[in-house]
Simulated assay, not measured.
Amino acid sequence: MKRLLLLWDIDGTLIDGGHVCAALYPLAFERLTGRPALHRVAVAGRTEPDIMAELFARNGVSGVEPALVTEELTVQLGRLAAEFRAAGRVLPGVVETLRALGAQREVAQSVLTGNVRANAALKLGLFGLTEFLDLSVGAYGDDADERAALVPVARRRAAAAYGHDFDAAATVLIGDTPRDVQAGRVGGARVVAVASGASSAAELREAGADTVLADLRDTAAVIRAVRSPRPAARGPG
């Protein structure tokens, strides 16, 4: 019986995609609008539909059908797949940690990611990580624009799959940005933050992560972090 639900962020937590991820959105914008995006937007910790919505707004575009956006994002990543695989890497300690946690019968591992579902599956497959994760109970960028809204989605899917509810104490989000931390806190999950992306450990603590790790190299430390109960009292940061 699965009693602990781990929801992994992908980009910056499990995988470093190099420059390719940021290039995806201007390419999709140009294909959908017929012109280049003159103004770029921040992408870290956001859902892909949210990134594209701001990209459209900042460049004076409206009325693009969401389904077409999702389809184009999927097409563009497929075209970039070989480049993404060549430029990217699995971050240190990831495989060892996923394998160790996957060996524990009471633990279910999935993803909570801003990637649309097809892109999440492609990225994980390119780097051989799919075998460790139950993607059927994950939550994706095409499930909700706001990242915090994805936590209840994953919890509902896991409850249906495993036959019991996962409350906030039994749900752990692992990510690398303050937006990941906020998603966990608002959505109802404990948060283990990893300073493996662009955000520092201090920034992740300030955002309110329950635990902050430098990286995932120490498998035992990761296991302790995901199993540690949320502190009874916390300050505002």
Score class of each variant (00 low, 15 high):
A139F: 02
V153T: 04
A149Q: 00
G138H: 02
N59L: 09
Q76R: 14
F127L: 10
E96M: 02
T130A: 05
A53C: 03
A121K: 09
L101R: 07
R46L: 13
A149V: 00
P49F: 09
Q104Y: 01
L68Q: 14
V41D: 06
A44L: 11
N119L: 08
L112M: 10
G63S: 06
A139R: 00
R147H: 06
R85N: 03
V107L: 02
F132I: 06
V69Y: 12
R147N: 10
L124K: 03
A44S: 12
L122I: 12
Q104W: 03
G93W: 12
Q76T: 15
S136I: 01
V43Q: 08
L124N: 03
G63Q: 09
R46M: 14
D145A: 14
G93K: 11
L124Q: 08
L68M: 14
R105F: 00
E71T: 11
R85Q: 11
P152T: 05
S110H: 04
L77F: 15
G93V: 09
T130R: 07
L133R: 00
T130Y: 00
S62W: 04
P49M: 13
V94S: 14
R105Y: 00
R117D: 11
F56R: 00
G114Y: 02
R99V: 05
A144P: 12
L98Y: 12
R147S: 05
L91T: 07
E65M: 04
A120I: 01
S62F: 02
T47N: 04
L55G: 11
D142I: 00
P152A: 01
E71K: 14
L98K: 07
Q109I: 11
L150T: 01
A67T: 13
V95D: 15
D145C: 03
R46A: 11
V43P: 05
M52A: 04
G138T: 09
E48G: 07
F132C: 07
E83D: 12
L98T: 10
G78A: 13
L55F: 10
V75H: 11
E146Q: 03
S110G: 04
R147I: 07
V111Q: 02
A100G: 15
L112F: 05
L135I: 08
V95F: 13
T74K: 10
A86V: 07
E48F: 05
L80I: 02
L68R: 15
Y140M: 07
T70V: 15
G141L: 05
L73F: 08
P152M: 06
F132Y: 15
L112R: 01
A103R: 12
G125Q: 00
N119V: 14
K123H: 08
L135R: 13
P92G: 13
G128W: 09
G114A: 05
T70D: 06
D143C: 03
E65S: 01
G93E: 12
F56M: 01
T70E: 12
A118D: 13
A144Y: 07
E71Q: 14
E72H: 04
A87Q: 15
E96F: 04
N119I: 08
L150G: 01
R117E: 15
G63L: 09
A57W: 00
A81M: 08
D145P: 04
G88K: 13
N119Y: 07
P152G: 01
V43R: 13
V137C: 11
V116S: 11
R46D: 06
A53Q: 14
L135V: 06
G45M: 01
L129Q: 03
G93P: 11
G141H: 03
I51H: 04
V61T: 11
F132A: 13
G128P: 01
G125A: 00
R85L: 13
G60H: 14
